[in-house]
Amino acid sequence: MGFISRGFRGRPRDEGVKLPPGQYLVHDFPVLSAGPTPRVPLDRWEFAIDTEDGKTHRWSWQELMALPSETPTVDLHCVTKWSKLGTAWKGVSLDTLFADVESSAEYALVYSYGGYTTNLPVEDLLDGKAWITYEFDGEELAPAHGGPARLLVPHLYLWKSAKWVQGIRLLNEDWPGFWETAGYHNYGDPWREQRYQGD
């Protein structure tokens, strides 16, 4: 018999909903970020993919808008324990952005306006698993939630879905990002509860 919290019953369980271990359901959209919200004017906004050979592919806001978009509906899992199900986004698949990128790098370091970084394997960005999003719930993405554009990688904890995304650097070696160097897990799979280093 494991640990029991005396007198704790918890909320009535919704048997239809399966959440990753340790998570609870929310219906609003909490905001978490480590510093001030950067404001990026669209006429100066740019997204880049930098390859391991020093080549850079760039997109202006207009160029991003001209690309075919997708409307993924996904579940979000934040390492601070909340999960939000069935969120509706609009954005461009990373498969589309990577179509003309020649690279054999295995690692990606995502960087943001404001200086935030996060790392993940390149394969987690491809095959329909990640998007550069600019609309949430039919509205343009609010700055507090990462607007004008944020990375969306919903199969990993939400800190990997970098807000205010500015670019992706492709690397031959793994380069831990902001939270990854501050004690959080390097990969961050919510279903394996990879919250902190060593989990």
């Binding site: 494991g2 640990f3 704790f8």
Partner: peptide, 11 residues
């Protein structure tokens, strides 16, 4: 982390 008698747990 809290754990109820039926094993339900939340953090």
């Amino acid at each position: 982390r809290l754990t109820a008698e039926d094993g339900y747990s939340t953090q």
